[in-house]
Design a protein around this nucleic acid. Structure first.
Length: 635
DNA sequence: GATTACTCGAAAGAACCTGC
DNA sequence: GCAGGTTCTTTCGAGTAATC
């Protein structure tokens, strides 16, 4: 099937010519500004959103200066462009400004920042202040470097500078940062005590789905060999908790024939003759959940909501776009349910949407049939493979995040090539190393992973082998890096990325969806009882906090493991959990009472000692057998 | 034509580097 | 050690293609 061209691809080189009718032509011909280098998204935004406003020329000059003179990152300039346009739209209307000459930062910026009526958060207001100040400085530098006659021309589109005195009076960034730190600390505190359990439970769940997939494979084999015919009722036992799982295997034809009174005569006719949507090549096997019975307490009977850990997700139709589909009442009910798990309710959320057909969602060609069939079925319907793929990605990601403290972007870079994944003997033990580009760095760094993470990577590769129908040894397809990612430009070309599905590289939101599905139902609460939602970066904080406070890995070593240059930043991550502060306070008070006068000797570690501790930390971090947080018991 | 799935832009939120 | 500044992550929803 031909791939749809993205909007970005539709913009050709020289797209800035689109701005000829929108922006003063002298800006497009400004000295030292190369408009061919300006990102197509900025061009389109200026043309389609900003054109006709009082600030189109100043904002266009800002884009040109920041991207091609100051050479800031594209993502930085885009967010500044979007943010400033939206704020000015609001402020020009609110303060009844007509032309850009009416804009006076000395008057309007303080008014906006102190405006109690305006609903913008302190963070949003402070961002605007920072963007304005920074952009004004860059534009000022650019204009001052021009010959005198050109300064008069381009100076008319400069942002008026904000005097330093006012600038400092308005700065409340420290308050914003403190708020962020507090929120981060509260969420990390909620998750840290469950670090080991989270990992163990995730392993266990992958095994559960693997067993279901194996069992379904056996039943399908019976059908295809003619020893059984759909629908086939089957059951098997799970041990955590002890339960018997009951389900039915259907195919399209058998389902329609069994529910013939609920389908049109035409559909039944096609099903009986196995034509069109029911032709043998189009057949699909799917499950209907009958329910589970607890073997230690059979009194509640069969419960469909208790199906493994995600029965409620199926029952309430929460996969993929499900939370936004249905009548307004249905959507409201679904959103309220998600809210009870800590997901935001203000905007409609889809926490289990991967954005990729067939991953945590039914394949495109099956989705419509299954949605309609669901309305006629007694229990939730499902396909095993989309869920199995999701938990396989989810477990590999969770394991990588919790044993290396890596960031989302670093995980996305993992590819099945010798220059990325390779083994090395470290003090007698063969280790798998992953070479990736950390945030803000220009050189590749190495991440040491343990045998368990290696096994998870292998499982992903095996799953991809099935998914793509590859022969043993045949490489997984080379795909382009997720194009929506802000750092995508750093990873050009096509590579056999490990985190890919359906011929496309997984996006950060797809990884998050897989993680959340795998961990659905695990409750992490702040001390105030507010549910905390799982996300990749939170796992980085939890990893740092755990290895520093539980595994006693020194802060400078934690910084090296996290690939952070500044231990002050590491300090934010590894701040002690509140419950540990309380415990420590108790211990300290007891010691003060009994050990008055004792003073520990100051301890300074030599470089050799640092190296030994680093190797020791590497040894402990990344192995399941000696994993920080305890051993995992996978049943 | 109605419904559903997917793409991708937009913006908020958060992280963290650099230079003084 | 701090202020200033830049970069990356996450989330949401409008628009559009695909399907029945």
């Amino acid at each position: 099937m031909p791939r749809r061209r993205t909007n970005l691809e539709r913009l050709q080189v020289g797209a800035w010519r689109e701005l000829l009718d929108v922006v003063d032509v002298r800006i497009l011909q400004a000295p030292s500004l190369d408009w061919d280098q300006v990102d197509g998204r900025a061009i389109r935004y200026l043309k389609e959103s900003v054109a006709g406003t009082a600030w189109i020329n100043p904002l266009a000059l800002m884009v040109g200066v920041l991207l091609t003179s100051a050479r800031l990152n594209v993502a930085t300039v885009l967010s500044r462009l979007y943010g400033m346009h939206v704020r000015w739209q609001d402020l020009f209307a609110r303060y009844q400004l007509r032309t850009f000459a009416d804009w006076d930062p000395c008057e309007h910026l303080p008014r906006y920042l102190n405006d109690e009526v305006c609903a913008d958060s302190v963070k949003t207001k402070q961002d605007f202040l920072f963007w304005y100040r920074s952009s004004a400085d860059h534009m000022h530098d650019y204009v001052r470097a021009l010959p005198a006659d050109l300064q008069a021309i381009y100076g008319q589109w400069e942002f008026p500078l904000l005097p330093r005195g006012i600038d400092h009076q308005l700065d409340r960034m420290a308050e914003v940062i403190e708020d962020q730190r507090h929120r981060r600390q509260v969420e990390t505190d909620a998750l840290t005590p469950h670090f080991a359990k989270l990992r163990g439970e995730a392993h266990l769940r992958w095994n559960q789905l693997f067993r279901l997939r194996t069992k379904v494979g056996e039943v399908i084999a019976l059908v295809t060999s003619g020893q059984a015919s759909c629908p086939v009722a089957f059951s098997y036992e799970e041990t955590h908790p002890r339960q018997r799982v009951h389900a039915r295997l259907w195919d399209r034809r058998s389902f329609v024939l069994a529910h013939a009174d609920q389908y049109s005569r035409a559909t039944g006719w096609e099903a009986r003759r196995q034509i069109r949507a029911f032709r043998p090549g189009n057949n699909t096997y799917f499950l209907e959940v009958v329910g589970t019975e607890l073997l230690d307490d059979p009194s509640p009977g069969l419960m469909s909501e208790q199906f493994l850990w995600f029965g409620d997700v199926l029952r309430y139709d929460l996969l993929s776009e499900g939370p936004c589909l249905g009548t307004p009442e249905e959507v409201k009910r679904k959103q309220a349910y998600l809210h009870s798990w800590g997901y935001e309710i203000e905007r409609r959320c889809k926490p289990f949407s991967s954005g990729i057909a067939g991953l945590l969602a039914w394949p495109f060609e099956q989705a419509n049939f299954l949605r309609k069939a669901q309305a006629r079925a007694q229990g939730p319907l499902l396909l095993v493979e989309p869920l199995f793929a999701a938990v396989t990605f989810g477990l590999a990601a969770l394991d990588f995040f919790t044993t290396t403290g890596a960031r989302m972007n670093e995980l996305l870079q993992v590819r099945l090539t010798a220059d990325c994944l390779y083994t090395m003997v470290v003090e007698g033990t063969q280790r798998l190393l992953v070479r990736l580009l950390p945030k803000g760095m220009t050189r590749l760094a190495e991440y040491v992973v343990g045998p368990e993470t290696r096994r998870h990577f292998e499982r992903v590769a095996l799953m991809l082998q099935d998914h793509y129908g590859l022969r043993p040894g045949e490489p997984v397809p080379a795909v382009a890096f997720c194009k929506h990612h802000g750092r995508a430009a750093l990873f050009p070309g096509h590579h056999p990325y490990l985190f890919q599905y359906g011929g496309q590289h997984l996006s950060p939101s797809a990884i998050t969806a897989c993680l959340r599905f795998l961990c659905h139902g695990m409750v992490f609460e702040t001390v105030e009882g507010k549910a905390v939602v799982l996300k990749a970066h939170l796992l980085r904080h939890v990893f740092a906090t755990h290895i520093h406070h539980v595994e006693q890995v020194p802060l400078d070593i934690v910084a090296v493991l996290l690939h952070q240059k500044n231990t002050r930043v590491t300090g934010y991550y590894a701040a002690p959990p509140w419950h540990q502060v309380l415990t420590s306070a108790n211990v300290i008070l007891d010691r003060f009472a009994t050990h008055l006068g004792s003073l520990d000797e100051a301890f300074v570690r030599a470089p050799a000692e640092l190296q030994r501790q680093y190797e020791e930390a590497k040894e402990r971090v990344g192995t399941l057998a000696k994993v920080p947080g305890g051993d995992c018991t996978c049943l």
